[in-house]
Amino acid sequence: MMYAVTTVAILICIGMAMARAFLGPSIYDRILAINSAGTCIVLFLSVLGFLMGRPDFLDIALTYALINFTGTIAILKFFKYGSLGVSDPAAPPKTKVE
């Protein structure tokens, strides 16, 4: 029961985040909204695992939590430089690697 209530709350939250993603107005709002929707979906998947009595669903939640980060970084980097391949000044110096 408690899982069901939580699931409903999370679904409502996903809905609102998606509404923000659709409304915009700027690209940053959309990135933020989709990031939040992603978080909500991780929560949703975790709770769903408990709701359906299959807690091994957590693997998917964990995967998404890790991968969502890569995606958001890629988007931000793309937004900033217009490409993904640019080396950043924060890169370790050449001598350090290898």
Partner: peptide
């Protein structure tokens, strides 16, 4: 690996 390349750049 993508994450590494994104944060540190493709060359490293």
């Amino acid at each position: 690996i993508f994450l590494y390349a994104l944060i540190y750049g493709i060359e490293p």
